[in-house]
């Protein structure tokens, strides 16, 4: 057996997960950190590059004169003139990189005095009659106008990055999905079902004969 074949036969129990709960927290805070803690360096690198790379690429796409990373923000104001930003519930799974949005929301939920050049700040709340009135204000209409499709692309990428980190978190908690084991269980279940059906048919046939 070659080294590669041997490695591929690593069972889930042989993977050193250390304390999985600490790993989960670390994996949520910074993608890949939980795996680094468990000593799974290659995986840590893959998760960090893919998830953080995607998140920052999306954040850069949605940056411009109106501020930095304007596609990641918290806004919980439903109705006219408001903006309910459900995307943040997915984006927050990326961990620390999405935290400035929380700080900005706590600092000023109206978006009038944002910190750090508007990094992840909520858009300026304006009354419905004034929406898009001034071209210089950072209302959601103006941000969308200035960034154009880059706003949507940034939103998509940062949201995807957050959702992908959920995979990484589960991987840190219980190791990789054992596909062979899952397939074996599925086949066993199917076999049992078939046997049950056959037994029922035989029983019915016997009853008919009687």
């Amino acid at each position: 057996m070659t080294a590669t074949e041997k490695d591929s036969k690593i069972s889930q129990s042989e993977i050193q997960l250390k304390d999985p709960y600490i790993a989960v927290w670390l994996a949520w805070l910074v993608p890949g950190l939980g795996h680094l803690y468990q000593g799974r360096k290659t995986k840590a690198m893959i998760y960090a590059i893919c998830i953080l790379g995607l998140f920052f690429f999306g954040a850069i796409l949605a940056s411009g004169k109106c501020g930095l990373a304007r596609c990641v923000y918290i806004s919980m104001k439903p109705g006219a003139g408001g903006d309910m930003r459900y995307y943040y519930f997915a984006q927050v799974w990326v961990g620390v990189p999405a935290f400035p949005a929380i700080i900005q929301y706590i600092h000023d939920p109206t978006g009038e005095n944002p910190l750090w050049n508007g990094l992840m700040a909520p858009p300026l709340r304006v009354s419905p009659s004034l929406r898009g009135y001034s071209e210089n204000d950072n209302s959601i209409d103006n941000i969308r106008k200035k960034l154009n499709r880059r706003f949507e692309l940034g939103t998509l990428m940062t949201t995807m990055a957050g959702l992908l980190n959920i995979f990484a978190i589960f991987d840190a908690l219980s190791g990789p999905v054992n596909e062979e084991e899952t397939e074996r269980r599925r086949k066993e279940k199917l076999k049992k079902k078939r046997m049950k059906r056959r037994a029922k048919r035989q029983k019915d046939d016997a009853a008919e004969e009687i």
Binding site: T4, D7, S8, I10, I15, R40, T42, K43, I46, Y47, C50, I51, G53, L54, F57, L156, M157, M160, A161, L164, F167, A168, F170, D171, G175, P176, V177, E179
Partner: peptide, 21 residues
């Protein structure tokens, strides 16, 4: 970037061996 990130993260959640991944 979306396709590659999604594929690599999904593959990493299913394989431990780098070559297979």
């Amino acid at each position: 970037p979306l396709i590659f990130a999604t594929s690599f993260v999904y593959a990493a959640s299913r394989n431990e061996n780098t070559q297979n991944l």
